[in-house]
Write a protein that binds this DNA or RNA. Structure first.
Length: 529
RNA sequence: GGCGCCGUGGCCAAGUGGUAAGGCAGAGGACUGCAAAUCCUUUAUCCCCGGUUCGAAUCCGGGCGGCGCCUCCA
């Protein structure tokens, strides 16, 4: 099976067929950087990250661009109120956004163009549309796109062109438009724009670019006239993306986007997130409140992108549990393998490469509908190759095709997570006494899957950030202290002095350290993180 | 009003014709000095009614309930 995605325009699942699998071009609508991004934004952005990771894992080479909107009504108003100029206001939030993205283990995209850096390209685009008579200059020097020049307007959102036309009173501040549905490509300079530097010269007059225009111009500048994939939140379908199509195809004459993917919105505690309800939760607030980034990432990524996701305390608690289980599993594998994840990958390239093929006899079809525990020799072509593999490796070879099949089915993360946890469940009991090389196979496969999910990455990123904040020396000191306590406790236990042993465990517990006594000694982990 | 989505065990959530993946939480058990971790066992008339079919959570009709977009909010 090959990758299939749900295209908004065709309203159905379609095979993903990029023009060139070696150069897949993806554009995603990013945030307006006038404040800290909220968790709803990040539901969408973490999905972008998933697309980015999944496509590369599946073997595509990807160029992925996400814009940052730094000139619009909101940035201008905020900069004015703060008495600064546009970059003075937006730049800190650009950095804030990237920090938040890092915290969630989002992999960096190839470019984050800012609108203000591409105004020339936007002016050029408007000029082209004027030349082609698809746009007109209004009395005040604003430029509008002429809807009637693009008969296909409305095809993405599936709305009736005539709807809302009759009996519509032309609003006072839009008297320059020929048709109420025409949208602004260029807005003539308004009072206050100059103060913050939000005004540029154009042949038809001074002003600033319209919102839809930014994305058309920047995607063309970065990726060319047509894209394989364009991503955005569901609210952008109309009018934003509809406008992008009209402008882009109007100017170039060629198809703008192959497949549109739109992410459903996030709700908070069963309510829509909105300013009026006062429940605009920023990611920063959530994290500073003590929530772990890995749990947040899990929560945001674990629900299919076309299903509404409701963020709440219960769900986050569930995510914490799920992530903790994976982290412990990774630790057990590392111990049993005696190597790092990187070394494990070298030992088992077939299990750790991007999108390991089902070439070991366990085809996707064969894996589906079999129960996870049956390492059968009766599967087509499965017996012989499996002969030399240990039980952990066999489980990995079972899990990876399922994981892949789920991703290929419109990025079914729930299915992918199920494949992962079936793997965890089947490996855990076989880990005691497993051959190191075999355990390494499990470690390699686990990290391969995490290259798509990013959950272990988010957990270890948080861990590192924590110790970096503490400072290297203090961290060393702390470790030494913990290990000394553990040594003392081991002595106490050998002497069967249970009271002393328990007291030491309690003391460590208060310091946030949890102990696990295993056959190979005592392991400790930090609570959370 | 127009267009569209959804309703699966305590919570979250896969599954779109052949008698229900997975996670979290709970209960019992194994293991442990006690724990923790791990494993085993255990919890579903798939919103309701009717229809199509040998067979439906899955298709069709109706109902009830929840939600989104329809002014630059991801």
């Amino acid at each position: 099976m090959a990758l299939r995605l749900h295209d908004t325009e065709r309203r159905t699942l379609v095979p993903f067929e990029p023009d060139d699998p070696e150069d897949v071009r993806i554009y995603a609508c990013g945030p307006t950087i006038y404040g800290h991004a909220h968790v709803g934004n990040f539901r969408t952005f973490v999905f972008y990250d998933l697309v980015h990771r999944a496509l590369e894992w599946l073997g595509y080479r990807v160029r992925f661009v996400m814009n940052l909107t730094d000139v619009d009504d909101k940035t201008i108003r905020a900069a004015r109120e703060a008495g600064t100029d546009l970059p003075g206001w937006t730049e800190p939030f650009r950095e804030s956004f990237l920090r938040d993205a890092d915290a969630l283990a989002m992999r960096r995209f190839d470019a984050y163009p800012k609108a203000t850096a591409h105004v020339d390209a936007m002016i050029e685009l408007v000029a082209t549309l004027l030349e082609r008579e698809m746009a007109y200059v209004a009395e005040d020097g604003s430029v509008y796109f002429d809807i009637s020049a693009f008969p296909e307007y409305g095809r993405l959102s599936g709305r009736d062109l005539e709807e809302g036309r009759q009996g519509e009173r032309v609003l006072a501040d839009e008297h320059d438009k020929n048709d109420v549905r025409d949208f602004a490509l260029w807005k003539a300079t308004a009072p206050g724009d100059e103060e913050v530097g939000a005004a540029w010269d154009a042949p038809w007059g001074r002003g600033r670019p319209g919102w839809h225009l930014e994305c058309s111009a920047m995607s063309m500048a970065e990726l060319g006239p047509s894209l394989d994939l364009h991503l955005g939140g569901e609210d952008l379908i109309f009018p934003h993306h509809e406008g992008e199509i009209a402008q882009s195809e109007g100017a170039t004459g060629c198809r703008f986007v192959g497949t549109w993917l739109h992410v459903k919105h996030l709700r908070i505690q069963d309510r829509k997130m909105s300013k009026s309800l006062g429940n605009m939760l920023t990611l920063r607030e959530l994290l500073e409140g003590g929530e772990s980034a890995a749990a947040v990432r899990h929560q945001l990524v674990s629900t299919h992108y076309r299903t509404e996701l409701n963020l709440g305390a219960e769900g986050l608690a569930g995510s914490r549990g799920a992530v903790a289980r994976l982290v412990r599993f990774a630790l057990r594998l590392e111990e049993a393998a005696g190597v790092t994840a990187g070394e494990a990958a070298e030992l088992h390239p077939a299990l750790s490469g991007d999108a390991p093929e089902a070439g070991w006899g366990g085809s996707v079809e064969a894996a589906e509908g079999q129960d996870a525990g049956s390492l059968d020799a009766d599967r087509p072509g499965g017996g012989q190759e499996l002969g030399g593999a240990g039980p952990v490796e066999a489980a990995a070879r079972e899990a990876l095709p399922r994981f892949r099949a789920a991703l290929e089915d419109d990025l079914n993360v729930s299915g992918a997570l199920a494949a992962l946890f079936v793997f965890v469940k089947s490996v855990n009991p076989r880990l005691d006494g497993a051959a190191p090389r075999d355990a390494a196979a499990g470690l390699a496969a686990l990290h391969s899957m995490d290259r798509v999910l990013g959950l272990l990455e988010a957990a270890s990123a948080a861990q590192e950030e924590g110790s970096a904040a503490d400072g290297r020396e203090r961290e060393e000191e702390f470790r030494a202290w913990v290990e000394e306590r553990i040594r003392q406790r081991t002595e106490a236990r050998e002497a069967r002095d249970w009271a002393r042993a328990d007291a030491l465990r309690d003391e460590l517990g208060e310091a946030g350290v949890e102990l696990e006594d295993g056959p190979s000694g005592t392991r400790w982990t930090r609570r959370d993180g």
